[in-house]
C-alpha cells in the first residue's frame, strides 16, 4: 500500500485492512500517546484511530504539539 506520510512517499507491507492505530505501529511512529493524526486533510479524534481504515493513495500527517513554536 502506497501512502504519502508527512509529505513523503511511503510503502506499507500489510495484509488486509490497516487502521490508523495499526499504522502508528507499522510506521513506528514516535510518542504515539501524543500524536494527532490527519487523514486526507481531516483531523481524527483519538477515539476513532482503531476504526479509521487507511487505504492505498491516502495522505497521512502526524502532528505533535510539543516541539517548536509554530501552530
Amino acid at each position: 500500500m502506497n501512502l504519502t506520510v508527512n509529505g513523503k512517499s511511503a510503502t506499507i507491507e500489510a495484509q488486509g485492512n490497516v487502521s490508523v492505530l495499526q499504522l502508528l505501529d507499522l510506521l513506528n511512529v514516535s510518542q504515539k500517546e501524543y500524536v494527532t493524526v490527519e487523514l486526507n486533510g481531516d483531523i481524527l479524534d483519538r477515539e476513532s484511530f482503531a476504526a479509521s481504515p487507511v487505504q492505498d493513495g491516502d495522505t497521512v500527517e502526524f502532528l505533535y504539539f510539543m516541539g517548536g513554536g509554530a501552530l
Binding site: N6, Y34, F62, L63, Y64, M66, G67, G68, G69
Partner: peptide, 17 residues
C-alpha cells in the same frame, strides 16, 4: 522545519522543551 510545524518530535530550545 518539520519539528516547528509539528510534523516530527524533537527538542528545539529549552524554553519550549
Amino acid at each position: 522545519e518539520d519539528i516547528f510545524r509539528g510534523r516530527a518530535v524533537g527538542q528545539v530550545y529549552t524554553r519550549i522543551g
